[in-house]
């Protein structure tokens, strides 16, 4: 049994199994491939369109691979009030990291904030933010 089938089998008996399956597939492969959509649809007795509809609805799910490291930067109001837009403008254009906006990380009194691989960073200033981008390369 391949890894994809294992993930599907692990959740199949649960109520509303689709999101847990998609989360695990994305965590395992980095994205949700066409092949995965077909397999999930078949196992869950859904149409491919239904599965694709769910994948494309949620910001967390990707349907194309992107191996670049990800930095999630909070750009919601509280971080805006603490200068996140100026921080972002100070960063030279970066193509080797994927800079994603999130709304928000829930650290709204100590922004600007970012999350890299599940690790949170608060009170970012220009130096700390640039160091974070450098370190994730």
């Amino acid at each position: 049994m391949n890894r994809l089938d294992e993930i599907i089998a692990m959740h199949l008996a649960d109520e509303g199994a689709l999101l847990p399956i998609l989360h695990d597939v994305q965590a395992e492969f980095g994205y949700i491939s066409e092949e995965a959509i077909v397999a999930i649809a078949l196992a869950m007795n859904l149409s491919r369109a239904e599965v694709y509809g769910v994948v494309s609805f949620y910001h967390d799910f990707r349907s194309t691979p992107d191996a670049r490291p990800v930095i999630q930067l909070c750009r919601a109001e509280a971080c805006q009030a603490r200068g996140v837009e100026a921080l972002l403008a100070s960063l030279p254009v970066q193509n080797h990291v994927r800079l994603e906006a999130v709304y928000c990380l829930g650290l709204c009194s100590v922004g600007p904030n970012a999350m890299v691989n599940g690790t949170l960073h608060a009170r970012l200033d220009g130096d700390k933010f640039h160091a974070l981008v450098e370190a994730s390369l």
């Binding site: 109520e15 509303g16 199994a17 689709l18 999101l19 847990p20 998609l22 989360h23 509809g53 769910v54 609805f57 949620y58 910001h59 967390d60 799910f61 999130v102 709304y103």
Partner: peptide, 26 residues
């Protein structure tokens, strides 16, 4: 425990229910 997937609108109760059911968070 269920994990959301980055959709703000799922904080609305009926969208949240759809999301738990494995549907688009409409």
């Amino acid at each position: 425990v269920r994990t959301g997937a980055g959709a703000y609108v799922c904080g609305e109760e009926t969208a949240l229910l759809n999301s738990i059911e494995g549907k688009r968070g409409e």
